[in-house]
């Protein structure tokens, strides 16, 4: 088996869910989102920074998040992303889908 401490490779589509969850609180810019995901997941999940921005833009195109330019903590111009109503609904449905999936997979693994 692999190294228990190595960051996990993320399953397809998970990044979207994590971004949505991260934005559930307040609007954040890209850098903050990547930092926050890493922080909250105790470094277990490493977000490929290169894939973060295309993912953000994809979510924006779908209308789940919207972007706005604002000032960062150190007073620099930054692009802030916020969850839209559509995005919030999507977060809820994806979260419950994820829960059901992990539960089901867990059950199968436990039986084994």
């Amino acid at each position: 088996m692999g190294d228990a401490d190595a960051p996990l490779a993320m399953p397809q589509g998970t990044l979207d869910l994590l971004i949505l969850k991260t934005l559930a609180g307040e609007p954040q810019h890209g850098w903050a989102i990547s930092q926050r995901i890493q922080l909250v997941s105790s470094d277990a999940l490493r977000v490929q920074q290169g894939s973060l921005y295309p993912a953000l833009h994809r979510l924006e195109r779908r209308g789940w998040i919207k972007a706005e330019w604002g000032a960062s903590d150190n007073n620099r111009r930054a692009k802030f992303y916020a969850l839209t109503r559509k995005g919030r609904a999507e977060l809820d449905s994806q979260t419950s889908a994820w829960r059901r999936l992990t539960l089901a997979v867990g059950q199968v693994l436990d039986v084994g």
Binding site: W31, E60, S72, R77, K79
Partner: peptide, 25 residues
């Protein structure tokens, strides 16, 4: 979104530059 990407290409590109520069900084 697509229309903006198509017709305001320069603006969208500039924003992308700014966003990535901010990240790198």
């Amino acid at each position: 979104y697509r229309l903006r990407a198509l017709f305001r290409r320069a603006e969208v590109e500039r924003e992308l530059d700014d966003e990535l520069r901010f990240h790198l900084e």
